[in-house]
Design a protein around this nucleic acid. Structure first.
Lengths: 334, 334
DNA sequence: CAGGTAAGGTTAAGCGCTTAACTTCACCGA
DNA sequence: TCGGTGAAGTTAAGCGCTTAACCTTACCTG
């Protein structure tokens, strides 16, 4: 069996309290006793049970991460970055894919509470608002990652989507484009903001919004294909397309090529997220990069702050996205 | 504060033992008392602490999953499938990315033991053999996922990589190919098996192995690019390439196109894994699919079996891969 | 109507650890 | 010589839950 603190204590001829003290580096113990105990721990391969520790009111050093779908490259990167930062701080992560379903979100939240996680990171568009709000009453600190929802009184760490859209719009205009189509995910707050920012850029540069078509497509292969083909069939083909995710953009490039239309010669495209799709697509996809690593480190920082001090008021941190220039946008000025 | 079993008991005017009984559906309680207690639990939004439950010797309903890198699409899919199956069985998952580093593997294993997980799934090429073997002594059931290592006495659930390679080889030969180059990951057992299977197919079909070049490349963007270009510069270009991962294959397609060489007209390629890269690449990548969903469900099944009954001898389950035909291989017979 | 029985509880110990409060003892200065 | 002091431990309660063993009633039966 796994050795317990009693085994160590007995072996060392001391009380368990003494052993506990060397575990936590508290109280007074002579160097001699201490090293003896440490020695014995090694011999027995003793590992304190974090379950028992947690029961005494200490932390579980576990945080829950809610994502919609870990198989989506963006969220996979997010999970990776969060895990990395958490690990460095001594925390581990319980992974929860909600699959965009209210029920799963609900169940997972209950589960995380039951498991006494120290905090929860929500990277999925929240559906179960009631449950989420109840997190506060239950003193479970939470951080919204890359999403924002005024109805929830948590910390927020997100990309400035509005600005991201704006960057994309301004860039295309600088490159001489004037006719646009937007492909965006329906019912996603960040998608809405991206489009809004994009349009704002057009307005600021004096482009008429009337002619701008907005097509809705989820960030899934078949929907993205459909959207791409819809654009190809348009009577007046736009000179540039703004896709609200890289997956949509990458598929657009492929569909368009199949139709004998060339990117960026015949049509330009700009994506969002800077996932691996953007990097390996051909031509390389110009896109708006979310600063995932930074978002993750701020998120963990905020969460740990909130864990240490539950009463601090929720901050809303917005990090600037950056434009990554590759080869999918043609410069019409040249 | 979070209500405890005491709060419920007090409110219901019964002892905590009674409450515990309704929680576990054991012992005798009158319907009346039971429904009253259930009612009160609802009102208080009582959730039993799984930490306390775990301490009484019950399970934690948590399993650890070790992957090398969750940002890799293959492992992201794996994590997703495992999580899905685990959730259905009432388990949740602690995610551990080892980043191919012995140290992290080691630390995570210690952590998982400390957290008293009920079992561990290892989907990363194991490095810390000693620690892994010690899992057995500590009665922590484990399953090797998609890898195999005779030195470790765990259950194994894996794709039949040998057969996968064989399938790829036979397919290419059926399509009339005779000159091959293989791109494979170095130091990866499954990679070795894939290559071996591939070669076996060639031998069985009477193709001389002498002319078959094997290039090593990690499944990373830059290494894959390098490998692709190395092939392009070859004095005698092969008619078909076998890449041991989809990422390598997808990048190969792009690099080759940039060089003005067309897939599959000028050169054919076949991948392995059937990740999203295979699906969205252009042309669609013909590849060997690992039955991820099935692997995951068998893995969870084996692990739960081992948790219930630690003494069952370790099984080794090998699931057959299948060939997914898309458009990246040319039929030379036509 | 004594004694058995079963239903519906309760009591209390224990899981592995933390921690406030207490004990013990050596040593010190006046 | 004696009280005071500080170092090094120990004692014991408590965290929230489970469970074996026990208790109390009501009811049944010969």
């Amino acid at each position: 069996m796994k050795p317990t603190i009693y085994d160590v204590a007995k072996e060392a001829n001391v009380s368990i309290a003494t052993v506990s003290k060397v575990l936590n580096n508290t109280g007074r113990i002579s160097e001699k006793t201490k090293s003896k105990i440490l020695q014995i721990m090694k011999e027995l391969e003793y590992q304190p049970s974090s379950v028992a520790t947690a029961l005494t009111g200490k932390k579980t050093f576990t945080i829950g991460v809610l994502v919609p779908d870990i198989a989506n490259p963006f969220f996979a990167e997010v999970a990776r970055a969060l895990e990395n930062n958490a690990r460095e701080m001594g925390y581990s992560i319980i992974l929860c894919s909600t699959d965009y379903q209210l029920e799963r979100e609900h169940d997972y939240l209950e589960l995380l509470i039951k498991k006494q996680v120290d905090g929860i990171i929500i990277a999925t568009e929240p559906k179960d608002l009631k449950k989420l709000r109840s997190l506060n009453d239950r003193n479970v600190p939470s951080v919204l990652f890359s999403i924002d929802h005024l109805a929830i009184d948590s910390h927020v760490v997100t990309t400035d989507d509005l600005k991201g859209g704006y960057l994309a719009g301004r860039y295309l205009i600088e490159k001489g484009h004037r006719d646009f189509v937007i492909i965006t995910e329906p019912q996603r707050a960040s998608g809405v903001l991206r489009v809004e920012g994009f349009k704002k850029a057009l307005v600021d540069e004096g482009v008429d919004l009337e002619g701008v078509l907005v097509i809705e497509a989820k960030s899934k292969i078949n929907e993205a294909r459909k959207a791409a083909n819809q654009i190809l069939r348009l009577p007046k083909r736009p000179s540039a397309v703004f896709a609200s995710t890289d997956l949509i953009a990458a598929i657009f490039i492929n569909e368009v090529r199949k139709a004998g239309v060339s990117v960026p010669q015949d049509i330009s495209i700009i994506g969002f997220d800077n996932t691996i799709h953007a990097e390996i697509s051909d031509p390389g996809l110009t896109t708006i990069a979310q600063p995932i690593a930074k978002l993750a480190s701020y998120t963990i920082e905020q969460l740990l702050d909130a864990i240490e001090n539950p009463s601090i008021p929720p901050n809303r941190i917005m990090l600037a996205p950056t434009l990554i220039e590759r080869e999918s946008v043609r410069d019409l000025n040249k």
